[in-house]
Design a protein around this nucleic acid. Structure first.
Lengths: 242, 242
DNA sequence: CGAGTATTTGATGCAGTTCAACGCTCGTGG
DNA sequence: CCACGAGCGTTGAACTGCATCAAATACTCG
């Protein structure tokens, strides 16, 4: 049975801006249902115009684009709290695909009601824009990473980012977390070959900075890792939840 | 003297969604003034929280981030019609800088009135979100470019994109346009060294695909260039203007 | 005319790609 | 119960696209 927004487990995580109970009621009305999908299942497809929008409730996934030459770029990793489908909602169609890496639970909204956000609930619309701006921020960081960082710096950057995000969501246990992606996924995210990704991870292990094996990421020296990846360990930005 | 929104030259360009006269009147009220800045002048600074938002009216500029190690990543090129400062508007502060490459005229809005967008003019707020989604789309493309394309493909991609955008704005003359950036800017945008950027441009010239010299870009074979850069020559997406 | 900035060209080196092969784990079917 | 293949991770070796180093050539402007 679908969770009530009132009891949404995400709202408890401290990375999200608090909602008024009025807002929660509005979201509940907006919510069309819940969707559980298995690993490997596509959620949204590039070029399609999904009638639905989603918020990831549980599980992890990937956003990616496929190029005409067949290569794949992973845009980012999808975590609980991510809003999916804004592009299809507001433009004609999706410009990237999303698929599940683990089993995922998605909160489903009807695209046709997106407009009521703007007409009837200005602060929720504001939050939506805020979310888009946050997304833009992270994509800007990714661009800087792909353009200016070396392989080992990229990897350090990615692991720090992923771990911090998970931490803010309460998905970590001590210095460990579940990271259910393949090395190929990370390679496609960082613009590296699979082979070099593997060797780079081995280096981080040797240097006692971080170890990612068997789907578990263990951070052994966060400070050094963050320094290597040139990440400001800013207090993770609070963001709204849709 | 400041242009009236009513007479805004941008609204004529066919890449922008039409505005109702009601919307135009609202924008006029929202508009705080006009700003003319000289080449090299910073408009927004990373880390600052500008009290103002801008729409580029005339001229070209750069969005960029500076990394802790001193390297610079150009996020994208700023063209007329671009909205600047959404991040500072909605989050605390800017996460990238913007500076002018030519003389620029900016349309100035007060950040404090951003909220009135959402409260009083839902369709303008919707357009703002739309713009953010468009921005996200292009940044996703840039990520794919930096991650998966070779040097010459990147360059071809960038030149096609830039030229198409300029064309939609009516800034081209036949197969030529003004491209007032330095090779270093392009290098920092594509994640290439200055030297290799130069050599890559030379190749495109030899191959009769495109020639960019003395601030003028000339496209000699758009079809081949687009194919090399793997760009879908999609009808340039219509977008709202703020 | 000299200083500063941008473009161009050649030479050398290395970070990361590509190719190739092997091991491990699982699921499937005979 | 074992054989087989598919998917993923790991490792070595060879190659190359691009970075880096170095220096010359415009161009602009005070």
């Amino acid at each position: 049975m679908a969770t009530k927004c009132e009891n949404c487990p995400l709202r408890r995580a401290d990375m999200f801006i608090d909602m008024s109970s009025d807002e929660v009621r509005f979201m509940q009305r907006f919510k069309a249902g819940e969707l559980v999908i298995e690993p490997g299942t596509p959620v949204l497809m590039e070029g399609s115009s999904s009638p639905q929008l989603y918020t990831a409730l549980r599980g992890m996934g990937l956003r990616y684009k496929t190029l005409p030459n067949g290569r794949r770029q992973v845009i980012n990793f999808v975590f609980p709290g991510d809003f999916l489908g804004l592009q299809a909602g507001v433009m004609r169609e999706m410009t990237h695909s999303v698929e599940a890496s683990t089993q995922m639970t998605l909160c489903v909204f009807n695209r046709s009601e997106l407009w009521s956000f703007f007409k009837n609930h200005a602060n929720r619309a504001y939050d939506l824009t805020w979310l888009a701006a946050v997304e833009e921020h992270f994509m800007g960081e990714a661009i800087a990473t792909l353009g200016q960082r070396s392989a080992i710096e990229r990897m350090a950057w990615a692991l720090v980012r992923v771990f911090s995000r998970a931490e803010a969501l309460g998905l970590t246990e001590g210095d460990q977390m579940n990271l259910p992606y393949r090395q190929q996924d990370m390679a496609d995210a960082l613009g590296l070959s699979l082979v070099h990704t593997n060797k780079t991870l081995a280096k981080l292990r040797e240097q006692q900075l971080a170890a990612w094996t068997d789907g578990t990421l263990r951070i052994r020296n966060m400070k050094a890792l963050a320094q290597l990846g040139m990440v400001d360990i800013e207090a993770p930005m609070k963001r709204p939840l849709i």
